[in-house]
Design a protein around this nucleic acid. Structure first.
Length: 945
RNA sequence: GCGGGGGUGCCCGAGCCAGGCCAAAGGGGCAGGGCUCAAGACCCUGUGGCGUAGGCCUACGUGGGUUCAAAUCCCACCCCCCGCACCA
């Protein structure tokens, strides 16, 4: 902790205490007064929040604080998300004594060793980080109303979630079905990416099974990713040396590898009847259910019993492995199925030969397979004659019927479509099935066991695939304000592909499904409309309502206005006054004005937030805005536990002080951009804030009451002008833009001002006050301190937005003086030797105004001599947007007067003495004949040494 | 694979939606100067190439196209980042 940060921390502590005591951030509803309700995604306390969270909360805080200056009731609450598995998982790992994890926690979050030991208990762990995070948010100066704080395992919250799910279910949006999940056989538990070794994401894929029967009661289910090649099967492959079993699978007697039988047992009934070696089945003949053709089972050592079923169909025309193996055996027989531009009839053969593959063990076959597969998948089309291969064993008219279907949906179709069709057809006609598998195996559970795919038979889903629901979600997305605006496309795309989503789980903390105990509402499903809960929980507690009173009728009344107060009161035992008061509070605060989070939540949480709002609430209660910010990198690198470079918020506050940290997190990148947090930058910002502190102190102490000079007016105008821009930037959530202006550009104006005046005037104090309010959203503690120094009265946090007005003439005067300085410096003869600068001013400002039109005649009409008029029009054209508009809005402007008051500044800037003359003053010396060179806004200049 | 976003000068990044005023804002870095006992901070100047100035050439992933005119519009291709579900 440096001297500087100590200063800022001490200062912040003082003001935080006063805010708390005065309850500045604990708004009560006030019907008739405008409000602003903003929330940021609550944190998940399996660790302390870091500067990435801090950034999101800070952006929300800046907006909250900004809106407070406009007489709005601003409501910014916070809660903690206990629901879910990671807390559980981490606690388990700690309980098991995992050294790496414990060290990570101690090092990154500074957890003392004796606390570490207690973190085997998930609730203790959550509570610990909950409190640590909360302390960090307070120290960071977030203007959060803590009277509404809650956790998602509070009984009241659970009643709320149960209400939500009953509502969704009654609307038919909750459905039940089969669902594959990654599964650890040892734990008998679902395994997500977070629970695997190295956080490897299990890739759950589907094999199509095709049932080849041998006529003696045995079925050989081949597993394939390319069912469209089934008509081209010439034989099956089985590994002669691998372990196989004969088993009952869903009423069929099948032959699969022993490993496959194990994996299949998680996806249906599997009863192993006997074990066998693969070679036992070699030489059998089986019937292709698609074509009716009988083919032989050959042996192949490349068949991996851990992949699929261990029974493989052979399509030599389109699969390089199959072709190579058959070539080795001297049994080439090719049935072409797919046409691909750039290849002949038999792509597999062609590629194998081109690559010079030697035999079936040649590693080049991998590449060959990849090439053929991707070429056929992306550009391949099924041949027209494939339908004739199908159903040769069926009697008429069945044969013709099947062929007709294949002609329609299979022959001549792109591979993609044909595959989809045949896969569906196989399943529906009972000739095939589906088997799930981990496609990127092996993936291991944290415990070391290889995971498998388990099919949950009665999983609950939220049916985000429902077209009407999607339509409503799209409508809201269209209406909503989004920062950044590009996020809209992302949201719409998400809505498009989103389908059923499992919404309950068998383990973890959370709310039990009201109608199906044993299932817990999953954490991305119990966090979609909780913003409404913030509005009511305070009063629920104040009235001492018990969880069991929070019935469906209660929530219906309070959140939807459904039902009669008297009735609801009678049924719930809640007094009508309480019901009305709670309802009123919800009515006042809702809808939500801004929802803030990291951009990573766009395809999940934020989309669900939209879906659930449109499902539950009427459109006038739909949220108004989403702000999704980018990541926070640290010194150019992603923060991660394993790199141990995570910077927790509380530590960051200690290192830099709250205001410097805030300034850095706001100024280093615009909202949508990833922000690279650099130590050096944070230190620089601390110094800048310190300089601002010193500067304002100086103004407060030295200001004198005097009639405002051009300089005083300029300062006030300059500040007013920048603050106008700042206001607009805040409104558009361009917080970086606002911060650059308010912390750097306004400061520069003040610096310049102070360098030009002997003593600041009272007007400068007014400008400083305005400045302090504008910086309050970013550096609130410093702002309070300076507000007090300037005698502002009350809290800066609650003061109205400044009404400082810009005087265009004052701005013009300053621009004009700066232009003059530039002009002088541009003169080649100007140099260190220049002692005296004579300036001849043309005071006919009305000529300049007339020349603004670009019309020379207008200038002449205004009285300018023709040659001057021409030059003047050209001059005005070259002046730039800002000055031109100033000229337009200023009525009278006396250049001589302006220059006179800026004379010391001029002399300092030029390092020479300056003499000012009216060009029309006959008594003035006409040095170098420059009198007639003078134009309005462009004085004549004569240098002498 | 599907979906979203990108590729701009030494680096970061704006501009592209509404084509010209774009050798292309703003930072950073670097070089020079100022301030200072000195460093930092701060301020000024320069920072594609050539030319004595006007100017010329080369440039916005690559290749085509539309247009009097393209970083900006269209097409194709290459490359990068992010997300893809029961996980917060």
């Amino acid at each position: 902790m440096s001297e500087l940060s100590r200063f800022f921390i001490e200062l912040a502590g003082r003001w935080q205490k006063r805010w708390r005591e005065a309850k500045v951030f604990e708004p009560e509803p006030s019907p008739g007064t405008p409000k602003f309700f903003i929330t940021a995604a609550y944190p998940y306390p399996n660790g302390a929040i870091h500067i990435g969270h801090g950034r999101t909360y800070l952006i929300a805080d800046v907006l909250a604080r900004f809106h407070r200056h406009f007489g709005r009731r601003v409501f910014y609450p916070m809660g903690f998300h206990y629901t879910g598995t990671p807390i559980l998982t981490v606690a388990e790992v700690i309980a098991a004594g995992d050294k790496t994890v414990m060290e990570e926690y101690m090092e990154i979050y500074g957890v003392p060793e004796e606390e570490m030991k207690k973190m085997g208990d998930p609730l203790y762990l959550a509570r610990y980080f909950h409190l640590q995070s909360k302390r960090a948010m307070e120290a960071f100066g977030l203007s959060i109303d803590w009277t509404r704080e809650f956790t998602t395992i509070d009984p009241e919250y659970q009643r709320f979630i149960q209400w939500q799910f009953e509502k969704l279910r009654k609307k038919g949006l909750v459905v039940r079905g089969r669902h594959p999940v990654g599964w650890c056989p040892r734990h008998s538990m679902p395994v997500g990416a977070h629970d695997t070794k190295d956080d490897k994401e299990p890739d759950i894929g589907q094999w199509t099974l095709i049932y080849f029967a041998d006529g003696e009661g045995l079925t050989f289910p081949t597993a394939t990713l390319r069912p469209e090649t089934a008509p081209g099967v010439t034989n099956l492959w089985i590994n002669p040396d691998a372990d196989y079993v004969v088993a009952e699978l869903n009423g069929r007697r099948v032959v699969v590898s022993r490993d496959a039988a194990f994996r299949l047992s998680f996806q249906g009934e599997v009863k192993v009847l006997r074990e066998a070696r693969g070679r036992e089945f070699v030489g059998r003949w089986v019937q292709n259910p698609v074509t009716g053709e009988w083919v032989e089972i050959y042996e192949a050592r490349f068949v991996d019993p851990k992949v699929g079923t261990g029974v493989v169909m052979s399509v030599p025309a389109h699969a390089p492995y199959d072709y190579a193996a058959l070539r080795d055996m001297g049994l080439e027989r090719l049935i072409p199925l797919i046409k691909v531009e750039g290849y002949g009839e038999y792509p597999a053969k062609e590629v194998v030969e081109r690559m010079g593959v030697k035999n079936q063990t040649d590693p080049a076959l991998e590449d060959a397979t990849k090439e053929v597969y991707s070429a056929e998948y992306s550009r391949g089309v099924m041949r027209e004659d494939v339908a004739d291969l199908v159903a040769r064993h069926l009697p008429e008219p069945a044969r013709s019927m099947v062929r007709a279907v294949f002609k329609m949906y299979f022959a001549g179709r792109p591979v993609k479509e044909a595959r989809e069709f045949i896969s569906k057809w196989l399943v529906e006609s009972g000739l095939g099935g589906v088997m799930y598998d981990i496609m990127n195996k092996p993936v291991y559970c944290r415990c070391g066991t290889e995971i498998v795919v388990k099919v949950l038979e009665d999983q609950w889903f939220l049916n985000y695939g429902d077209p009407k629901w999607k339509e409503a979600a799209r409508r809201l997305i269209e209406e909503m304000a989004m920062v950044p605006s590009d996020a809209k496309a992302h949201f719409l795309a998400t809505v498009d592909w989103l389908d059923k989503r499992a919404c309950a789980r068998t383990r973890g903390l959370g709310t039990p499904l009201p109608w199906s105990p044993g299932w817990v509402v999953e954490s991305l499903s119990d966090s979609t409309i909780y913003m409404a809960y913030y509005t009511v929980i305070k009063k629920i507690r104040q009235f001492g309502l018990k969880p069991e009173q929070l019935t469906e009728e209660f929530w219906d009344f309070v959140l939807l206005g459904v039902g009669d107060v008297g009735e609801v009161a009678k049924k719930t035992g809640v007094s009508p006054e309480a019901l009305k008061a709670i309802r009123e509070e919800f009515e006042y605060w809702y809808p939500l004005d801004s929802r803030n989070s990291g951009k990573d939540l766009i395809p999940n949480h934020l989309t669900f937030f939209i879906f659930n709002h449109v499902a539950i609430f009427p459109s006038e209660k739909w949220p108004r805005q989403i702000v999704a910010n980018g990541w926070v990198l640290r010194e150019g690198e992603k923060m991660s536990k394993s790199k141990r470079n995570v910077l927790p918020l509380d530590r960051a506050v200690e290192m830099y002080g709250p205001d410097p940290l805030r300034a850095t997190l706001v100024i280093a990148a615009e909202v949508e951009q990833d922000l690279d947090f650099r130590d050096a930058e944070a230190r620089r910002n601390a110094q800048q804030l310190m300089a601002i502190y010193a500067l304002v102190q100086r103004i407060a102490q030295t200001a004198e009451d005097r009639a405002p000079s051009w300089l005083d007016l300029w300062l006030a105008s300059e500040v007013a002008q920048i603050l106008e821009r700042v206001k607009e930037a805040y409104q558009r959530v361009r917080v970086r833009q606002a911060a650059v202006d308010v912390l750097y550009n306004v400061k520069s104006a003040f610096d310049q001002y102070l360098s030009m005046v002997e003593r600041p005037s009272k007007l400068a104090v007014e400008a400083a006050k305005a400045w302090v309010i504008a910086m309050e959203p970013i550096a609130p503690h410093l702002a309070e301190e300076l507000w007090a120094v300037l005698g502002g009265g009350g809290f800066a946090a609650s003061a109205p937005w400044p009404s400082l007005k810009a005087d265009p003439a004052a701005l013009l005067a300053k621009r004009y003086v700066d232009m003059l300085i530039e002009d002088v410096k541009k003169i080649p003869a100007f140099g260190p030797g220049t002692r005296k600068v004579a300036v001849y001013v043309n005071r006919r400002f009305e000529w300049a105004k007339a020349a603004l039109s670009g019309d020379i005649r207008a200038a002449i009409q205004a009285g300018a001599p023709p040659q001057a008029a021409k030059r003047l029009v050209d001059l005005l054209k070259s002046l730039g947007e800002e000055v031109r508009s100033l000229v337009a809005s200023v009525e009278k402007f006396d250049e001589l007067e302006a220059l006179t008051s800026y004379k010391p500044y001029l002399e300092k800037a030029l390092g020479a003495s300056v003499e000012l003359y009216d060009a029309e003053d006959a008594s003035a010396p006409d040095l170098g004949g420059k009198k007639k060179a003078a134009l309005p806004l462009k004085p004549g200049i004569y240098l002498s040494s």
